[in-house]
Design a protein around this nucleic acid. Structure first.
Lengths: 176, 176, 176, 176
DNA sequence: AATGAATGAGGGTTCATTCAT
DNA sequence: TATGAATGAACCCTCATTCAT
C-alpha cells in the first residue's frame, strides 16, 4: 500500500513490492495472483471497508447535524488508521485502472440519497440540484481527507472534522 | 489530450499518440522531448491557463457574491472549452506523475487567500480553518467539474454554477 | 526453422531466434505475433505445402504403380528442399504443441482413401484393414523421410524412393 | 507417465507430478534427481524393456514368418500393457529431449540385422537397401502402435497384428 | 522421510526512443 | 522534415529446485 500510495500501480514493479516486503520476487506470486489484481483487491476491499465504516456511523444518529458529524468523525478516523489506503483510494489513478467501482461515486450516492430526502422535506435550498451537489460534497470530502493524509501535521483532527461538518451541513440544505 | 484523458499517462503509448495525430512514430520526437515531458507540459500549461482564466474573472467584481459567481462561471466555461484537459487535470493520476505543480493546490491557494481575508474582516465562521477549508472548496470544485466533463448531459451548465456558488459562499464564511 | 528443427518449440528462446537472424530481441515481434504462433504457422504452412505437393504429383498418373512412384518422388523432393521443415513436421513434438492438424493424419487419410478404393476393386489383401494400414504407411513414409533428412548422406535419393515405392505398393494391396 | 504422455516433458511441471502422485513438491526430489532425468530414465528404461520383450519373442521361432508374427504380437502386447509409456516413446518429443538413445533406432537396428541376413541369403528384394528399409519398417511399427494406443477402439488387436505382419514380411524381402 | 514456502534465474513480451534513409 | 524499422532495457511472471521445519 505504501508503494502504491506513493507511485501508483504503474509506478511500482512487482520486484519492488517483494523487496519491500523482504521476500524474493517469486514469493509475491505465492500471495497474489498478479500486480493488477492485488491493486484492484486493495481498492475494492478498501472501498467496501470505508463504506461499511460510514454506514455504521450513520446507524444511530437521527438528527441531521448529529448524523453529519458522526459521518465526518468516521471518515476522519478511517483516514487516520489507513493513511496509505486513503491515498490510493482518493489519490486516484484508481479510476484509470478500472479497479474501482468509484469510491467517490459510492460516497456521492450516499450524499445524493440524503439530498433527495431533504428535497422531499423541503429543507433543501432551491438552487441545489441533488446530483451535482452530491458530487461536490463527495469531492470535498475526498480532497480534504487526501490532503490531510499526505501530511497529518497540516491540520488538527478537529479542524478537519469541523470543516467537513460545516460545509456538508451547508450543502445538505439548511435554507438560509 | 484525448488519449491521456481517456487512459492516463501510462495507458497511452507514444505510438498511439503519433498515430492519433496522423504522423509516424518518429515524428513524435521532432515535436516533443518525450512522452512524460509532453504530459507534464500539458498539465502545467493547462494549470496556468486555468489559473489565468480564474484570475482574470476576479479582476472586476468587488462584492464577495459577485466574485464567487464570476469565478464559478469562468471555471465552468473553461471546462466546457477544454473537456479533455479538465479530465487530465482533475481526473488525476496527475499527482502520481509528479507532472503537476498541483493544480488543486493552486486553486486551493486562491481560496485560502480569500479565506484569510475573510478572517481578517471577521466574516469567516469560527469553525473554519483557512487551509483545510480551502482544500475542501478546491476539491469540491475539481470533482464537480470533472464529473460534469465526463458527461455534460449529467447536469445543466446552470445547475453546476449554482451549486458551486452556493457551496463556495457557504464555505467562504457567511456567518449564520 | 533450423532452431526449431534442432531443439523444438520449448528448447528455443525468442532471443535465440532473433539473434540467429542477426536482429535484436524486439525485432522478432515486428515480424511474428509470438513464438508459439510462429511455430504453429510454420507447421501449418509446411503441412499444407506438403499436402499440395503430394496432391499435385498424383494428378497425372493413372496406374497404381506410377502413382505411388510419383508420390514418393514428390515427397522426397520436398524433403530435399525443406530439410528443417521436414524435421519439424515429422520430428514431432508437433503433436504436443497442438500446432498441427496432424500432418501424419493428413498423409494417412490420403492412403486410407486409396486403400478403400483398392478394397472396392478387390485388389486389397484381405488381412489389411484400411485404417491401420494407412497409419502404418504414413508412419513409414514419415520416419524414412525424417531419418534421411537428418543426414542425407545416409542413403541415396534413389534408395529412399525405391524403398518407399516397394513398401507402399506392398501395403496398398497387390495380392500375392 | 500419464502426464508426460499427455503433455510432454515441457508441458508438465514438477509440481503437477508431485501432486499427481499425492505427495508434496519437495518429495519429488527425494525420489528423482530432477524432472529431465526422470523423463530420460522413463524413456531409457522403457526402451530397454521393449527391446528385451522383442528379443525374447524372437528366441524360439526359426522361420521368418513365425518370427515376424511373434515380434508383432510381442510389440502389440507391450503396447497394451504400457499405454502411456508407448505414447512417450513413440509420441515423440523424446528425440528433442536428447533423452532417448533412439528407441526407433533400436528397433530399426533389429530390422536392419534381419535385412542384412536376408540379403546374405539372397531373399531380399534387390531394390531394398537395408538401412532405409529398416527405418521405414521401424517407423511403420511405431506409428501404428502409437496411433492405436491413443485410442484402442480404433482397431482390433488382430487387425494391428495382421497389418504389421503383412507389411513387415513384405519389407523384409520376400521376392515376388 | 515428508513438507511446502521460499527462492531467483530465465524467458516472453512491450514500448520508449533512435537513426539511417 | 518525416519516416518506421530496429533497438534493447525493463518488466511481469513461471517454475525447477532448495531447505528449514
Amino acid at each position: 500500500m505504501r508503494l502504491f500510495a506513493q507511485r501508483g500501480l504503474h509506478g511500482v514493479t512487482s520486484h519492488e513490492i517483494a523487496r519491500g516486503a523482504g521476500v524474493a520476487s517469486g514469493t509475491f506470486y505465492l500471495h497474489f495472483a498478479d500486480k493488477a489484481t492485488l491493486y484492484q483487491d486493495i481498492v475494492e476491499d478498501g472501498a467496501s471497508r470505508l463504506a461499511a465504516t460510514i454506514a455504521k456511523s450513520c446507524e444511530k444518529p437521527t438528527e441531521v447535524a448529529a448524523l453529519v458529524r458522526a459521518e465526518a468523525v468516521a471518515v476522519v478516523s478511517f483516514a487516520e488508521k489507513n493513511q496509505h489506503l486513503v491515498r490510493i483510494l482518493f489519490g486516484s489513478n484508481a479510476r484509470i485502472t478500472g479497479a474501482c467501482a468509484e469510491v467517490l461515486d459510492c460516497i456521492a450516492s450516499t450524499f445524493e440519497a440524503a439530498l433527495e430526502r431533504a428535497r422531499a422535506q423541503g429543507t433543501l435550498a432551491d438552487e441545489l440540484a441533488p446530483a451535482p451537489t452530491a458530487q461536490a460534497l463527495a469531492g470535498m470530502t475526498a480532497r480534504l481527507i487526501h490532503w490531510w493524509s499526505q501530511d497529518p501535521k497540516r491540520a488538527s483532527r478537529d479542524q478537519i472534522i469541523r470543516s467537513l461538518v460545516r460545509l456538508q451541513l451547508c450543502g445538505l440544505g439548511e435554507k438560509r
